[in-house]
C-alpha cells in the first residue's frame, strides 16, 4: 500500500466574488521513499493540494475526497489528531525562507519547538537534536549558530534551517513547496542536492512542488502535471518525459530554455492561466491549446490511461496517433538540444 493515497481531492474557497475551485478532483499516490513532483503554473492548485493534505488552508474552505496517509484519512481527522501528524510524520517546507521563520525567536528555539511539540524531550535533548540537524543540513559552525536569529542567515542558509526543522522528527513524508524558487541558481542546486541526500539517509517520501521541469527530471520518480486545478497528465517520470501525452506538457517542455542554443528564442505557452472563479468550459486548456478541436470547447476530456500503460494518465481529446507523433517530435527536439 502506498504511503499517501489521495483520491478525488477538491478544495473550494468561498470568497466575496464567488467560489474559487482551487483544486478540482486530484488523485495520486506517493510510495515510501519515493519522490512525486507536482508541476504547473502558479495558481494551478499545486500548493493548495498540499496545504489541504496538511489541513493548513485558511479562509472559508470546503474540502472533499480522501487523503489516506498510512491508511488514515487526513481530511476527516479532527484538528487535534491531525496536529500529531504535522511536523512529526508529515513535514512541510515553504517557498520563501525569508519569511517562513519567526524573526523574533532564535533558530535554536524554533528547532527545539519542533521536537518538544511531539516528544517529551528535555531542553538539552532537544538542543542536541537541533544541533545534529543543523550539521546534517551542513550549516557551517552549527554549534555557534543555535542562538542566532533568522535575519543573521542568508536565504539559502534559512532554507537549510527550514529543511532541518522539517526533518528533525524523521518524518515519513516531506512536502516541499517550491523550496528553491526564492533562491539564486547556485543555491538552488545545493539545496536540491541536499534534499536528495537527506532523502537517501532518512528514507522520507517527498512531494516536490515546482514549476521547473529540469528539477523534476533530476529528482522525481513520478510526475503530476496540473492545469487550472485539475490534473492534465500524470505518471512515472520517464513515461511523462519520454511519451508526453498532453499539449500542456508539450508546452511546458518546449518553453524550457535551450541551454545550448545561445540567443535562441524562448517558446512560452501563449496566454495566461484561466480564472478558477469561472473556468473555461470543456477542456480548460482549450483557450491556449494550439491543437484545440471543436469538442475541446464543450466536452471535458476524462483522465484516461495511455494505451498499454495503466499508470500513465492524460486528459486530452486528441487522437492517440497525433499524441504519439507530437511526443516523438518534442523528445527528439530536446535530445538534439542536449546532444
Amino acid at each position: 500500500m502506498a504511503l499517501l493515497e489521495v483520491r478525488d481531492l477538491t478544495t473550494h474557497f468561498s470568497t466575496d466574488d464567488g467560489v474559487v475551485r482551487a483544486v478540482d478532483g486530484v488523485s495520486f499516490e506517493v510510495e515510501k521513499g519515493k519522490t512525486l513532483a507536482i508541476v504547473g503554473e502558479s495558481g494551478s492548485g499545486k500548493s493548495v493540494t498540499c496545504l489541504t493534505i496538511m489541513g493548513l488552508n485558511t479562509g472559508k474552505v470546503q474540502t472533499s475526497g480522501e487523503a489516506l496517509f498510512d491508511g488514515t484519512d487526513l481530511i476527516l481527522l479532527p484538528k487535534r489528531e491531525l496536529r500529531e501528524y504535522r511536523g512529526k510524520r508529515i513535514s512541510m517546507i515553504f517557498q520563501d525562507p525569508m519569511t517562513s521563520l519567526n524573526p523574533v525567536h532564535s533558530i535554536g528555539r524554533q528547532l527545539r519547538e519542533a521536537v518538544t511539540l511531539h516528544e517529551g524531550a528535555t531542553k538539552a535533548q532537544a538542543n542536541s537534536r537541533a544541533l545534529e540537524m543543523l550539521r546534517a543540513v551542513r550549516i557551517p559552525r552549527a554549534e555557534t549558530r543555535l542562538d542566532d536569529y533568522p535575519h543573521q542567515f542568508s536565504g539559502g542558509m534559512r532554507q537549510r534551517v527550514m529543511i532541518a526543522m522539517a526533518l528533525i522528527n524523521n518524518p515519513d513524508l516531506l512536502i516541499a513547496d517550491e523550496p528553491t524558487t526564492a533562491l539564486d541558481v547556485t543555491t538552488q542546486a545545493q539545496i536540491l542536492r541536499l534534499m536528495n541526500e537527506l532523502q537517501r539517509d532518512f528514507g522520507s517520501a517527498i512531494i516536490l512542488i515546482t514549476h521547473d521541469l529540469g528539477v523534476v527530471a533530476e529528482t522525481a520518480d513520478d510526475v503530476l502535471v496540473m492545469y487550472a486545478a485539475k490534473p492534465a497528465e500524470q505518471g512515472a517520470c520517464d513515461d511523462v518525459f519520454y511519451r508526453p501525452h498532453h499539449p500542456y506538457t508539450w508546452g511546458l517542455m518546449r518553453s524550457l530554455p535551450h541551454l545550448t542554443a545561445v540567443g535562441a528564442e524562448l517558446n512560452p505557452i501563449p496566454g495566461t492561466p484561466p480564472s478558477l472563479l469561472n473556468p473555461p468550459s470543456g477542456c480548460r486548456f482549450h483557450v491556449r491549446c494550439p491543437y484545440a478541436m471543436e469538442i475541446c470547447r464543450t466536452v471535458e476530456p476524462p483522465l484516461e490511461p495511455a494505451p498499454g500503460d495503466s499508470h500513465h494518465l492524460a486528459a486530452c481529446h486528441l487522437e492517440e496517433a497525433v499524441k504519439q507523433r507530437e511526443a516523438e517530435q518534442i523528445v527528439s527536439e530536446m535530445m538534439a538540444d542536449t546532444a
Binding site: 495558481g43 511546458l252 530554455p257 505557452i269 496566454g271 469561472n278 473555461p280
Partner: peptide
C-alpha cells in the same frame, strides 16, 4: 486582481517566481 492581459509567459526554471499569477485572476476580464 490582474486586470490587464499580461503577456508574461511561464518559463519553467528560468522565470521561476517571476510568473506569479494571482489565483482567480487573468482571462476574460476587460
Amino acid at each position: 486582481m490582474a486586470t490587464q492581459q499580461r503577456s508574461t509567459p511561464l518559463v519553467p526554471g528560468a522565470a521561476a517566481g517571476a510568473a506569479d499569477f494571482a489565483e482567480g485572476g487573468g482571462g476574460g476580464v476587460v
